[in-house]
Design a protein around this nucleic acid. Sequence first.
DNA 1: CCCACTCTATCGGCCACAGACGCGG
DNA 2: GCCCGCGTCTGTGGCCGATAGAGTG
Length: 410
Amino acid sequence: MGYLCDFCGEQRSMVYCRSDAACLCLSCDRNVHSANALSRRHSRTLVCERCNSQPAFVRCVEEKVSLCQNCDWLGHAGSTSASTHKRQTVNCYSGCPSAAELSTIWSFVSDIPAVTDSTCEKGLSSISIRDNSLTNCGGPLQSNDGQDASVLVEENDIKNVDKSSVWTESSSLPQLNTKPQNVDQQMGLANSTSSKMCCPGAKAPGQHEDDGFYEDFNMDEIDLDIENYEELFGVAFNDPQQLFGNDGIGSLFGVKNMSGSDLNCQSAYAAQDSSMMQPACSNAASADSMMSSKTDPNLCFGRQAHSNLSFSGLTGESNGGDFQDCGASSMLLMGEPPWGPPCAESSLPSTSRSSAVMRYKEKKKTRKFEKKVRYAARKARADVRKRVKGRFVKAGEAYDYDPLSKRRSF
DNA sequence: CCCACTCTATCGGCCACAGACGCGG
DNA sequence: GCCCGCGTCTGTGGCCGATAGAGTG
């Protein structure tokens, strides 16, 4: 991935699609993502203008440049002057927005080239925008994953979002990359008045960069150990420890590398008062927190205060880019756990839950355990190749198993 | 609680070979 | 830059042995 569009290789790349792991020019972005309903769901964001390879999650107002988490860290953490730069979160979008809509989303980008609408089907220009730092508290579940919601965000909303998501880096921000949970904590404090406990959405920018965050997050890793998810989603949890054991959600989700020594995702809370207790890390740790806090805040608090969690594939060696992939369950990232948010007044309707379960099933059905066959021709040959004790044999030689006859020759 | 043993589940290697791939002319 | 020939690499499925983990006495 580089400066030029990964698709056409001619135009300057402008947006990053995490689902495709590609930097695209606006024209190709529109072409590629108007192909079908699934591709239209891909969430895109600006490409980092510094490294040109990572999705931008923040816009430096002073420097007028969009930056990925790494470049933001490299550019702002070092110097004292730069660390005070005001930055805005960069919104993601899906669908097929027009140039005008894009300039609405990214008002700070002045050179959005015009893109033709010819490739988009009627109605496809409706876009959904995901803010990186705020989630729509209490909103319908579907709106958060961008699948069912084709919502044209009004300009006022965007302005509000942008306004609320501007922050100035403090002296502690060097922890942004290494310990983003602390930033979460800061964010949580900053938003403590607006984001209640029922809204786990006060995510730090970058942790929820786009849908790639949960789209790329391999749901299969969660699927592995959840066979009775219906029961999981349906039952009321009286004792989370009964359900999850001492490992918390890690044991449920089969997260392999949960160790107490890793610091990649330390759970922390934004407020001391348990009534305002806020999961400061939008991942499984916070899920554990939320579940626990729903039933037994004290227990949760006590346990979570000491729980340092990490995810498979995300080790201490992970760089910033890796950390951007610090995946959590999509349901967590949607801001609303399928078992319902902790506060009673915004309890999730059963239809939403069932739809969430349905979509979860759908995703599981389409993704889980399906071995991806890259070369159908090779598979076809292997399917008819004769074997001896499972091993392929040369053509014409004696065999003990013929896949065609489905029986042994002797 | 610890140890030894059994049972079950999981994982990786092996095989032939067509096609993909890279490289030099 | 394009084409061709050659050598190397890759991936495919079923079986089996090694290993890990759970269960039992």
